[in-house]
Design a protein around this nucleic acid. Structure first.
Lengths: 219, 219
DNA sequence: ATATATAATTAGACATAACTAATTTATACG
DNA sequence: CGTATAAATTAGTTATGTCTAATTATATAT
């Protein structure tokens, strides 16, 4: 059953929100898609009619197995295209999101597989996010936030949870990339800011908003 | 000024029909897009309001300069993506049309140029159709093979009919690229090989297999 | 507990781009 | 020349997905 561009975007948003929020509300979806709650309610009804989600006021929106499989398929394509754009077309990792948002909706039976093979079956996208497998399973890779690391912990940057341009630019400025080694020097109880050393460099202070959005692999 | 998916398809259809028919009628467009004439009339009005075409019953639909530039941009993207799908993703030449129909609508300032560079600036798509240049001009119709040029003829390389790596490597070695000036010094009747001068350089002998695959514009 | 703010929902409207059915115009043929 | 046929056009409808404004429900604060 083929889905529209718009339906795919809703499924993707619900999937992502479901990872962080314990309840996916119309308002949250509206914020994510930059539209309004009335439009969201309409679409939730349609998605429920198609058995792609269940929705009620108390539980919020929950993907059905079919809905989750769809969402993962779209995320898979999105991330594969991001790899293509960065590795093959020389885009910066902060430039590819909007293009991948369009490319993820290209429909073809063989395309994802062929693209995957062409790219050498990458396991993560340029932001370090894991690429779902063909079977529709999301591999777990880096799942610990830097903000959760203890003092003196040594770790490696696995992925970023925010792919916005301002955030990625900030990382670039700090010279933090995938694989960068980070040592937690001190955690400030007061505001959860952290003093860290990046690749054995000068200690730098970063906010909790920043450390919340970096996923690391502990050493 | 951004165009919708649908507008782009109309502009493309009008461009193609304009090449073969002396008058582009609503019926012809409807047949091409597999929809009906009433829908076409509606859209022609919209395109005329946007100054992308002129339309009247007598003349039919005619692309404005802006409309033609748009059409060529879409065709350029379509054909570049076809090259990508065949050369990089190993699709068959007969499988790529429908996917390219989707990919041609991806919007990004830099994408066509980056894709073009990545593919080695091919001049024809997998079906041998010329790829419009980035300046929005369909390359001056280069439909004469170098092998057909007369002795002493001066000409310019317009496109290549073979995009295989060995052929392109050979061209690179000879320093032949798009726009290269070639003078035919001598044609060997025996095997149709040619002695040519490239950009007023040393005379070189090339095979008929080579000259068959270079399309030129005669001076 | 009640006022206030926030969220969810409904109703109605709108834009896009398609459709069908009816009507007008043009072309072709006997 | 008039009529049959085909094409162009108009009017009205539909589906998708959005919106605003009004209403109802829920949560928060004093």
């Amino acid at each position: 059953m083929k889905k529209t561009y718009s339906e795919e975007n809703y499924l993707k948003a619900i999937y992502h929100l479901g990872k962080t929020d314990n309840k996916v509300s119309p308002k949250a979806i509206a914020d994510a898609l930059e539209n309004n709650p009335a439009s969201v309610i309409d679409m939730l009804k349609k998605l429920q009619d198609k058995d792609l989600i269940t929705y009620d006021k108390v539980q919020g929106a929950i993907l059905s197995p079919a809905g989750e499989a769809s969402a993962l398929d779209i995320i898979r394509k999105h991330r594969l295209w991001e790899v293509f754009l960065v590795e093959k077309l020389q885009y910066g990792w902060d430039e590819v999101h909007d293009i991948a948002e369009q490319l993820e909706h290209i429909h073809d039976e063989q395309l994802a597989k062929k693209l995957d093979d062409f790219l050498g079956n990458p396991s993560v996208d340029p932001h370090g996010d894991p690429i779902p497998a063909q079977n529709g399973k999301m591999p777990v890779y880096a799942n610990k936030r830097l903000s959760e690391a203890e003092e003196n912990q040594l770790c490696k940057v696995g992925s970023v949870r925010d792919t916005s341009t301002p955030f990625l630019k900030y990382l670039k400025q700090l010279k933090v990339g995938l694989g960068s080694k980070i040592k937690v020097i001190e955690k400030m109880e007061f505001d959860q800011s952290m003093i860290i050393s990046i690749d054995d460099g000068e200690p730098k202070t970063v906010s909790s908003k920043m450390t919340d959005n970096i996923l690391v692999i502990l050493d």
